[in-house]
Measured scan of single mutants.
Amino acid sequence: KNALMQLNEIKPGLQYTLLSQTGPVHAPLFVMSVEVNGQVFEGSGPTKKKAKLHAAEKALR
C-alpha cells in the first residue's frame, strides 16, 4: 500500500488541491496540497499523481 491509500484509510474523503504547475511542457513540476486536521501538507513532483503521493507521505509523518 502506498501513502495515498494509507492516508485515505485513516482520513477518507480528503481534498487534494493543485497549487501550481510550473516548468516547460516536457518537464512540468506540479505542487499539490492536502489538509489534514487543520494542517496543510504540500508535495511536488513531475506528475499530479506523484505530487499527491508526496503530500500524503508528508501528512503521514
Rank of each mutant, 00 (worst) to 15 (best):
G23P: 05
P28N: 05
F41D: 00
N2W: 03
N2A: 04
Y16T: 02
A27E: 13
M5I: 12
K1C: 13
E9A: 15
L60C: 05
Q15I: 11
A27K: 15
A51Y: 00
L29M: 14
A27Q: 12
V34K: 00
N8P: 00
G38Q: 06
V40M: 12
A3W: 15
Q21G: 06
V25Y: 10
A55V: 07
Q21Y: 07
K50T: 10
G43P: 00
K49S: 14
L19M: 12
V25N: 15
E42K: 10
V25A: 15
N2F: 04
F30Q: 02
P46K: 13
I10S: 08
L53P: 00
G43Q: 01
N2S: 15
A56E: 02
N8K: 13
V31L: 12
V40Y: 10
G38T: 02
V36I: 12
H26Q: 14
P12C: 04
L19E: 14
K58W: 04
H26N: 15
E57M: 06
P46A: 12
Q21T: 12
H54S: 14
V31P: 00
P46W: 10
A56L: 03
G43E: 01
L14H: 03
G43T: 03
K58G: 09
L29D: 10
A56T: 02
Q6R: 15
T22H: 08
A56R: 03
M32D: 01
M32L: 04
V36K: 00
R61S: 10
K49G: 14
H26Y: 04
F30W: 13
P24K: 08
E42L: 13
K48R: 09
Q6H: 08
M5G: 09
G45R: 01
R61Y: 12
K58Q: 15
G23D: 07
P12W: 04
N2T: 12
K1D: 15
T22W: 05
E42M: 10
L29V: 13
Q15C: 10
V34M: 05
K11I: 15
F41N: 02
G45M: 00
K52T: 06
V31Y: 09
P12A: 08
Y16S: 02
G23M: 04
P28S: 05
S33V: 08
P46G: 08
S33W: 04
H54P: 03
Q21R: 14
P12S: 07
H54Q: 15
E35V: 10
Y16M: 05
Q15F: 07
K52Y: 01
E35F: 07
A3V: 10
P12Q: 08
E57A: 08
K50E: 15
E42A: 10
G13P: 04
L60A: 02
K11Q: 15
P46V: 07
A55T: 06
L7R: 02
Q21W: 08
T47L: 01
I10W: 13
L4D: 06
L19T: 14
L14Y: 04
K1M: 15
H26L: 05
I10Y: 10
G23N: 03
G23E: 04
P28Q: 13
K48I: 15
A59V: 12
E9V: 10
V31I: 12
H26M: 07
K50L: 13
P28E: 07
A59S: 02
L19Q: 14
K48S: 05
N37F: 11
M5A: 14
T17E: 11
N8C: 09
T47V: 01
E9G: 11
L18N: 04
A51F: 01
K50F: 06
A3T: 15
S33Y: 06
A59E: 00
L18V: 08
Q39A: 09
V34D: 00
G45K: 01
Q39R: 09
Q21V: 11
T17A: 06
L60N: 03
E57C: 07
K52A: 07
K58F: 06
S44A: 09
A51P: 00
L7N: 02
L14G: 04
A56P: 00
A27P: 08
A56G: 02
S20E: 11
K50S: 13
R61G: 11
F30K: 04
G23Q: 05
K50H: 11
Q6K: 15
P28L: 02
N37P: 00
V40P: 05
F41W: 04
T47P: 00
P12L: 02
E9P: 00
N37A: 08
K1R: 11
Q15A: 12
K1F: 13
K11C: 14
Q21A: 09
L18A: 05
A59K: 03
K11Y: 12
V36W: 06
Y16D: 01
E42D: 07
F30A: 01
Q21C: 10
T17M: 11
A56N: 03
P28K: 12
V40T: 11
K50P: 01
R61T: 11
A56F: 03
L29Q: 14
A51C: 01
R61Q: 14
T22I: 07
L19V: 15
A3L: 12
K48Y: 05
L19C: 13
K49Q: 13
T22L: 08
V40C: 09
K48W: 06
L60K: 01
M5Q: 13
P24D: 15
V25E: 13
H54V: 13
M5K: 15
L60H: 00
S33K: 14
Q15M: 08
Q39C: 09
K52L: 04
N2L: 03
R61K: 14
P24H: 05
I10D: 05
V31A: 06
L18M: 13
S20K: 09
A55K: 00
F30D: 04
V34P: 01
Q21H: 11
F41A: 03
A51T: 00
V36H: 06
L29W: 14
L60W: 08
L7M: 08
P12I: 04
A27G: 09
L53H: 14
N2V: 04
K11M: 11
G23C: 05
N37H: 08
M32T: 06
L60D: 02
H26I: 08
P46F: 09
A55M: 01
I10P: 00
L53M: 05
T22G: 09
A55C: 12
K1S: 07
G23W: 01
M32P: 00
V36S: 03
K48G: 03
K58Y: 06
L14E: 01
L19Y: 03
G38S: 05
V36T: 04
S33I: 09
G38I: 01
V40K: 14
L18C: 11
V34I: 07
